[in-house]
Write a protein that binds this DNA or RNA. Structure first.
Lengths: 262, 262
DNA sequence: CGTTCCCTTGACACCGATCAACTCTGGTGG
DNA sequence: CCACCAGAGTTGATCGGTGTCAAGGGAACG
């Protein structure tokens, strides 16, 4: 059900009449984070969002082994990259939020080496790979922004390796929360320490390399320390600096030139 | 002590007279893995290797926070990407072997979010970023190969998250060994189950999220199972299929179109 | 009003960390 | 030539963080 993304204060104030697909606003916010886009660039980005599909929660957007013809962009909702092991266990290797690309690498690498699943009902733009390639050539600023997004994704992957490799459970979860807050803030989906967090504890477990049971206990601990408030999919971080300190969170790896907040 | 990279059968058969810097052969082997390079492309790649520096073991090639002016390419020896945590512990997030790029992302991202350290004495090509950028435009096939290399690196990062997140110690190490073998084979530095592995157990520990003590025990176990032979920096995998089975190793994520071996 | 999904709790087992010592090797210098 | 030293590998004893298993509770949904 469309419980997530009830319109926020940020979205309000726009002309309500024309049902303009504001999903792509997130994409544009993200792409213009480094270098501001010209109106032509922005129009091109908007055109990418013209072919929108709705995906149900728990449905795969792409499967491992697929050779996608489109580049997929998350416009609304959450998704996750994941790999499954022979024993059936799952490791989530990235969370995808509005504005994120699922498979920009599909333009160069033939086959998906992992799957992408919708964690909530989601709106996903399907962009023909050819269109992306042409765009990258015709609009170099935009092309560069696309590559930039890929490289930041890579930096996030490195950060995740550190997270699962060297941090203990409680800190690991704290770091994940800090990252999600920072990334959501960048696209206007988090502010004042609050954001929607439509993740089950099992999903968090699969992302942090823990078990759901232990995630539960660690979340309780974070709540007991007043570092986190969770209620019905809404997360509140009362004191971001405090949480960041516990997590050892240094946002430099997100490469936000335009700072959102410390 | 140039103990590593004693000339192999593969390297033999070339004209020995001119001291041609064959370090770049590894680079070319890697870049031509997907699409064969024209002689012009190859010449361009060779030119990238013209400015070679020697780096001592344990010296940083780049530090976190640096804004490099060059793209660095490993021509000989091993290096590692790493991040250090507030408590001083280190997590290695990638191994770099001959043919690998240290910081192709430097052309787009300003600041390094991690350091790169030489694990052995190494030869490193310093290429001006501008040269790389021009090359990527003038020689599109080569430019594409560069991006391809970046995307494969990204796939390897995902694989590492799975490794530290969901595999137990022994299997984790086995998987790392499989990956290294496959990658080295691609550039002609591994064959017949043998390759040089100049890593201390501490380094392996930092890469797998374990302690040196436990790495030691797990390596002993792998040896006791006849899955691995280690002697003075030389690794032998008597039965790759068996090790791959233990590791749950599926090389698809390395995106080798030109298969080296199963 | 039962079913399903998710969160929660407790008892217990175990993998891997920690701490500390010892060996072995190669290198260095007296 | 031998004493010494530093770095790497090895071993054993013990501790603790997470996993595992199992059961119960609560909210949303049909």
């Amino acid at each position: 059900m469309a419980t997530h993304h009830s319109s926020t204060a940020i979205e309000a104030g726009q002309a309500p009449p024309a049902a303009k697909p504001r999903g792509c606003d997130r994409l544009i916010a993200k792409l213009s984070a480094a270098s501001s886009l010209s109106s032509l660039d922005e129009a091109a980005a908007r055109e990418m969002c013209s072919n929108v599909h709705h995906v149900q929660a728990k449905r795969d957007i792409i499967r491992e082994g697929d050779t996608p013809e489109h580049v997929h962009v998350i416009l609304e909702g959450w998704a996750a990259r994941y790999k499954v092991l022979p024993d059936g266990s799952r490791q989530i290797v990235a969370f995808l939020v509005p504005g994120d690309f699922c498979d920009l690498h599909g333009t160069i690498l033939r086959e998906m080496d992992h799957g992408i699943v919708a964690l909530t009902p989601a709106k996903v733009a399907f962009v023909l790979q050819k269109m992306v390639q042409d765009l990258a050539i015709d609009r170099p600023v935009l092309g560069r922004a696309l590559w930039r997004a890929t490289l930041v994704d890579e930096a996030v992957l490195r950060s995740w390796i550190v997270n699962v490799g060297r941090r203990e459970a409680r800190v690991r979860i704290a770091h994940l929360l800090c990252e999600l807050y920072a990334r959501l803030a960048l696209v206007g989906l988090a502010a004042d320490g609050e954001f929607e967090l439509p993740l089950t504890q099992e999903v968090i477990a699969d992302a942090t390399g823990l078990t759901p049971v232990h995630v539960n206990r660690m979340l309780q601990q974070l709540r007991a320390e007043d570092l986190l408030v969770l209620e019905s999919g809404q997360a509140t971080i009362p004191d971001f600096a405090a949480l960041a300190k516990v997590a050892g969170f240094d946002p430099n790896y997100l490469h936000r030139e335009r700072l959102v907040r410390a």
